[in-house]
């Protein structure tokens, strides 16, 4: 398991060309699936501003770099509907608050969310229902 906080700033490098595409700025969560959907990059050499990369192109997430398959235009132009999970308010589907998100542990091999660490305890990735502008909604226990 790796933490979201531990991936921020890691260089994103292609396996085929060893080209650096940028650094990880954020991870976008597909909450209902309990999976990471995209990586948001910043500071790529040929790019200005932000770019998004689908998680399906990620080959490995190591302690020092994220390796992606190829630089053959892997970056999606269209920005996914992204809400930052770190710091997000947590709300159960019964309408009760459950603190805010401190960090997220995920399986770097699959992109699956293992545990969401909140200010009021840990929540399993299976309980995520949605992540929007107001809150991360989780299934009540």
């Amino acid at each position: 398991m790796m933490l979201f906080s531990g991936t921020k700033g890691l260089p994103v490098v292609t396996a085929d060309e060893a080209a650096e595409l940028g650094t990880v700025e954020a991870l976008a969560v597909e909450a209902p699936l309990g999976l990471i959907g995209h990586l948001r990059l910043s500071g790529g050499p040929a790019r200005k501003g932000r770019a998004w990369l689908p998680w399906s192109l990620v080959r490995a997430v190591g302690p020092d770099a994220v390796i992606v398959r190829s630089a053959a235009e892997p970056v999606v132009a269209e920005e996914p509907d992204h809400h930052e999970i770190l710091g997000s308010r947590v709300l159960t589907d019964r309408g009760d608050e459950h603190g805010t998100v401190k960090d997220v542990a995920f399986d770097p091999a699959t992109g699956r969310i293992g545990t969401v660490h909140t200010t009021q305890g840990n929540v399993s990735g299976h309980r995520l229902l949605g992540l929007g502008d107001y809150a991360l909604v989780i299934r009540a226990e």
Partner: peptide, 11 residues
């Protein structure tokens, strides 16, 4: 009290 969707959006 906010009205929130299961997707986490306040409406």
């Amino acid at each position: 009290r906010p009205v929130v969707t299961l997707a986490g959006e306040v409406v």
